[in-house]
Structures are given as structure tokens and as C-alpha cells.
Design a protein around this nucleic acid. Sequence first.
DNA 1: ACCCAGGGGCAAG
DNA 2: CTTGCCCATGGG
Length: 277
Amino acid sequence: MKLAALPAPDFDLAGTLNCGQVFHWTETSGEWTGLIGTRAVRVHQEGASLIVPAGTETLCANYFALDHPLRSVYRSFPRDAYSQAALKRSRGIRILRQPLWECLATFLFSSMKQVPHIRQISFKLRERFGEPVRGSSLNAFPSPERLAETNEAALRECALGFRAANLRATAGRIANGDLNLESLRSLPTPELRAHLMSLPGVGEKIANCALLFAYERLDSVPVDVWIARILRGMIGQPTASLASLQLYADNQFGRYAGYIQQYLFHYARASRELPGC
DNA sequence: ACCCAGGGGCAAG
DNA sequence: CTTGCCCATGGG
């Protein structure tokens, strides 16, 4: 297999694939194997270069968002000690440009699940309902059409629980053309968010995940239990509501709020430290 | 048995 | 706009 080297300054491949924004990549001694949509890809990092299969340069540069202006992102970080520690520790993580449906569906069934379990469900759905991919033992993420035509019981066998009905119903609304994820790209973020939240099982948090990790709305902040803990510690209000924390992040973190959020999320989980503790 | 996890949805104030 | 309450399930 011929390889190509992409210039990748300010890039941490392992951190990027390990920080809780994507759930199907596997690492073996520095080599990362996964899929970008329906393309099998094996990549690794050598210093400031990302080594990718020849012919996938454009695909990989786009997926790994090697064009994101990390210098500007870092300048926009809050000045407090905790945020700066998170920046130091998480430096090089990039917010991916993920396929729309795969990303939305994955975060749809992420609710009240731990990260390793989300991974497990992603693998099961791919194995059972996904199309085979040439050169990969991992199947593509199943299409909305495929998931819409399954019955709920089959989905529940993938450990989806109560999320099975929501996933199937949402897949149905997309499969029958009621909502076109691709054509929503042109909408301003608030309208786009509203359309996503009209889907069964998609509230503000999951909509913000899709906005950030797939639609490249880098100012979107998904507030989960971890971000809530971090923000509560940061502002010294242990009982602040989720809604007030959402407002705080939206108003204080600026145009790259989603990046700040991701760095805080990864730092809190990796270091097991919270602000003010 | 108990606790937690990258929540959603609704009613009521 | 906000708070309160119930829904839900697999893994540690």
C-alpha cells in the first residue's frame, strides 16, 4: 500500500480519536484503523505529519480538519488556570468533520451510556446491519433506510434499550425524505438545531453534538454530565441548572466554544480533576 | 442492592 | 424563560 504524508502541525491523532467525539477507531501500536464513511483507512502520525493511504489525501485532510485554525482557537481559550491546563494537556486535538447520519445516529444512542458502551453498540450495529467495506473487517455504519426497515426487537438486541425506538423512528423520518440532513447544511445554526431537535430522541445536547462534530458549527457546546460538572466548578455554583450552564458556555466561550468544550471534556476525564477541587 | 452514564420530554410555575 | 418530575437500561 502506497502512503502519503500530510502536513499536520498542531495535531494529536491519538487524542483526536480518543477524546469522545468518534467511537469506531481502533489502535494497534500507533496504527489507527477505521472508516471514513465507506472508505477503509489506516493512518498513523510521524511528528508533524499524518501518514495516510495514497489517494485519500483530500478525504483525510478534510475528515481530520487539518485546516482548522488552531492558533486562533487557542488564543480564544479562557485565561483561568483550569482552561489553560486543559489546553496544555489536550493540545492538538481537532474537531472532526464526520458523516452527518453516522454522527447524529451515534450520539442519538449515546444518551445515558458510557463511552466504551457507545463503542460497543456502534460495532454491533455495523456488524449486523452495515454494508461490508472493501479492505475492512468493519462494516459501514448502516444507512437510515436500512435501520428504518428493521424491527425494534432486532435493534434492542444491540443493547440499544429504549433508544431503539427513537433510532428507528429518526431513521424513518430521514429515509422517507421528511428531513434531508445534507440539505440542512445551508441553514443558520439555530434553524438547523431546531430541525434536528424535531427528530425523536434528539434534544439540545445531541443536536449540539451533531452540529459540532458533523456540521462544523464550532461554536456549539454539548452540555453533558461532565461538562456540567466542569462548568459548575468553574463558576462556583454547584447547583447551576443545565440550561444556565448552556447559556454560560454559549455567551462566554466565543466562536470556538465547541473546541474549548472538547478540550475541557477530555482533560477532566483524563486527569480526573475538576476546577475548584 | 446501589450507582452512574457525553438525556429526552413534558407539565407547571 | 425556569424548575420539577418521570422515563429509561446496561455495566461496574
